[in-house]
Design a protein around this nucleic acid. Sequence first.
DNA 1: CGCAATATTGACCACTCTCAATGAGGGTGG
DNA 2: CCACCCTCATTGAGAGTGGTCAATATTGCG
Lengths: 253, 253
Amino acid sequence: MSEHKVISFDNIKVACRNCSLTSLCLPMGLTPEDVDQLDNIVRRSRPLHRGDHLFRQGDVFQCIYVVKTGTVKSFDPGEDGSEQVLGFHLPGEMIGLDAIETGYHHCSAKILETTAVCEIPFTRLEELSSIIPSLQHQMFRLLSREIGHDEDMLTLLGKRNAEERLASFLLSLSGRFQRRGFSPSDFYLSMSRHEIGNYLGLAVETVSRLFTRFQDEGLLKVERKHIQLMDIERLKQILHNDQGGGVRERQIP
Amino acid sequence: MSEHKVISFDNIKVACRNCSLTSLCLPMGLTPEDVDQLDNIVRRSRPLHRGDHLFRQGDVFQCIYVVKTGTVKSFDPGEDGSEQVLGFHLPGEMIGLDAIETGYHHCSAKILETTAVCEIPFTRLEELSSIIPSLQHQMFRLLSREIGHDEDMLTLLGKRNAEERLASFLLSLSGRFQRRGFSPSDFYLSMSRHEIGNYLGLAVETVSRLFTRFQDEGLLKVERKHIQLMDIERLKQILHNDQGGGVRERQIP
DNA sequence: CGCAATATTGACCACTCTCAATGAGGGTGG
DNA sequence: CCACCCTCATTGAGAGTGGTCAATATTGCG
């Protein structure tokens, strides 16, 4: 029966299975029956278009979202309109986990390119998690992963210079594309330079200059949104460059 | 029976109840019986001393820790010894949530001043969460809160200048002390200037200079570790100061 | 086709870091 | 109990990364 669904042409089911599989099920020992149960509570939304809001900060929290296709950015709109981009979400990635605590969305989420998402009503997901221990475990893992990722970003913003930040960003994208079966070295950016800079704590101009410099140094080719990483190894070297260089930052006794 | 424990002089039980209450139970509708069950799996560790490691990055993950008294700092030691301080944990706060994903600690944790913690074996906590839906919900909330807090830190590091960062840091401490019944305007820092700077993405010298400046401006009095906030309102104003000042950062269309 | 948004590039400047020297505590051992 | 040392904190001077302002492509959209 589970098999039936996988090979069926019931697009909605298959689509949802895809999202949930990627983020929720694949890594853990969920039985096919469990997956079916999960599938049953997952809803696929209408296609969303660039500029649409998936939700806004302060909205009542009802669903976790999983990107199926497209890209979503999450951001803190700030009290006065000064955004802070918190993340770019590619297919298979979840959005809205920060809303569980208060029941209201802690950040906003906006569509960067035509996107399909799966909606998972959180209350039902909780109910199911109580019944299926491995699903509960998987949920804990997902939340924990988010924390770990945010901590990595804190290190990026707290310790790395502009060059290292952009290299890290590109390599992150590269890896995420690769894991999803796309080219790790040839892709299109769905976000603007402005959004990249905002995300990395840099000015637009700095991002632009760095792209130019990276290109001049043969690290990549860039033409607007189109990126080709020519030397991934050297990009990785940038990350592990001068970390030990600063004697003073060596350690906190 | 639950009442009995509360008024008993079984210090260990009471101690553990205190931790679990603060972080795990208070905000949610756990019944006294649920709390008892939780108490039964919570262990109180021996007192730890300054410099001790609670755990190290890469250690096998077994327990969530809740600070009972004292202060703990969590940090990413970095591959070469360049630390990134990720947080300072006061009584009632949890440590180790980022380890759930992989089963290995994602960061290290070190004692800043003599500290007592409660250990909560995570496997048993998971088992209990399956049985007690409101505990599961509370766990999801705790993890979500951590994500939200990290996101706030990303905004701090990505958008705020040195002055705003230190003001935000002091106000955060102030609020957390107040919530625990201590003075919000008169407290001792358990971390060094170096650690504060590291946490805020600033050099030690910058932190030191800012303390001096804040004192000169009458915002606070500082003498080594002893801080007295003299004008909390003005400190808060610093946070909401020039955010709208930059026209260019107004919004991302 | 033309306007608006986006991106690139240059010049300048400022915030913060780095380097360096001094002072103040805190702990240890004589 | 004091001297010594080591770490931590403070302060000053100078430098540099990256931000700001501004002008000019370039693109995309109505």
